[in-house]
Amino acid sequence: MITALNTTEPKIIPLCGQSDLIPNSGICAAVGDQQIAIFFLPDETPQVYAIDNWDPVGKANVLARGIVGDVDGRLVVASPLYKQHFDLITGECLEDHQVSVATYSVTLLANQVQLSL
């Protein structure tokens, strides 16, 4: 689990190469038992975003396979199961403010996607 990896020192975990990313879409990486959805939006700054892959509404690991876009200027992914929107930056579910997913700090550096914990 992520929490088990947590130390006082910031920890950098390489996840994948830039060529693994799909422009304007998502992929999924595993960190221990955790599934992280990574979205590559080449025209945005920053270019990569990471949230839980687990859809808390549909209850399946599918968010990486949603369509990305924006709602009122907020970058979102729409769950492929029941179409709820999750904010790529805050993890908030736009349809139900009680629901949210975790977000992760990722960077694209020297053609590598890195997760900072």
Binding site: R65, P80, L81
Partner: peptide
């Protein structure tokens, strides 16, 4: 094609029909 892939619903992307458990 790369320019179209992000436009598709997951069913079109994976050329199959997603069911409730993913």
């Amino acid at each position: 094609e790369e320019k179209h892939v992000g436009l598709q619903d997951t069913n079109d992307t994976f050329l199959a029909n997603m069911q409730k458990n993913g």
